[in-house]
């Protein structure tokens, strides 16, 4: 189990999307701008990277380093297209913030252009944006907790159960511990056995998935009077074909995983089948996030 402060940050990173955190004040240039133009923009606005766009599509990026090289070689009058990096890694605005955190860990870049579904530039995300957003959210949640702790005349129902568990690659010895705790908690709350079974299966399938197929990750359980919500997130490698992964019988498991009794390609479809709500997002090299809900007072 993670300590409470780490848990809080993990939960924030799951809950926020890149769109909520990025800056939308974008300084971008077109292909016919010069390096000198970019230098002026950087200087006047205190920024260190400028995307090059063609009809709002990102075609390159100029960094402070590119400007310094151009300055050294007296080439500031040349077009940006001669100096820009064209292999630009962008992030989708719909992705969870945790994916951006993974992207900054996995790449040396100090900023990522953010694009919408039409692949148009809509923002920029930097580590500073992330830090500020996390601090803002922490402070907002602190206010909420203080409000919750304030004396109240209204009798309280069952308290909220909120835990995060770290899962390690190939650690089948401990995989399933979170689900066992979930089961005990639901039993304690008097939830009907059939619903407990569904909730435990979702949790267990997602735990095993992280252990068997990812580089490791976390599973967060949230239980209140009405629902059990699971957020399972891993640090990659991501699923290249989500439709295939959601089909029964599709599996990338190796022989060792199969020898443990897993890897029949039923995990994700089964987790979806027994959930009342199910959402999955994945980014190659970034990770996969699954959110699943089982309502505790709704029989099927």
């Amino acid at each position: 189990m993670l300590d409470s402060s780490a848990l809080r940050v993990q939960v924030l990173a799951y809950g926020l999307k890149i769109r909520d955190v990025m800056t939308t004040k974008i300084f971008a240039v077109s292909r016919n701008c010069t390096m000198g133009d970019v230098q002026t923009i950087m200087k006047n606005n205190g920024i260190s990277g400028v995307p090059v766009v063609d009809e709002r599509r990102v075609v390159g990026i100029i960094s402070m380093h590119d400007i310094l090289i151009a300055l050294e070689n007296s080439r500031l009058q040349e077009l940006v297209t001669k100096h820009m990096t064209t292999d630009v890694k962008t992030l989708s605005e719909e992705l969870p913030l945790s994916f951006a955190i993974s992207a900054f860990s996995n790449h040396p870049f100090r900023r990522f252009p953010v694009v919408n579904q039409a692949n148009e530039l809509v923002g920029i995300i930097t580590p500073r944006n992330i830090n500020l957003a996390l601090i803002r959210e922490l402070s907002r949640q602190l206010d909420e907790i203080e409000e919750e702790l304030a004396p109240s005349a209204v009798p309280k129902a069952n308290s909220v159960f909120h835990r995060a568990y770290r899962l390690t690659r190939y650690d089948f010895e401990h995989a399933g511990m979170a689900s066992a705790e979930l089961k005990r908690e639901l039993k304690k709350r008097g939830v009907p056995p059939k619903i407990i079974r569904r909730a435990a299966i979702v949790s267990y399938e997602l735990e095993i998935n992280i252990v068997a197929h990812s580089h490791g990750g976390t599973l967060t359980l949230f239980i209140d009077d009405h629902r059990m919500r699971i957020t399972a997130i891993d640090f990659g490698p991501g699923i290249p074909d989500l439709d295939a992964a959601m089909r029964e019988g599709f599996s990338t498991a190796n022989e060792w995983i199969r020898s443990q009794g897993f890897g029949a390609g039923m995990g994700l479809p089964n987790a979806k089948r027994v959930s009342d709500e199910f959402e999955i997002q994945s980014g190659v090299e970034m990770g996969t996030m699954v959110k699943a809900i089982v309502f505790l007072n709704r029989n099927r």
């Binding site: 089948f172 299966i201 267990y204 009794g261």
Partner: peptide, 11 residues
């Protein structure tokens, strides 16, 4: 494996 017992408990 221990997962057999754990899985039995889950279902």
């Amino acid at each position: 494996t221990p997962q057999v017992v754990r899985t039995a408990a889950i279902v």
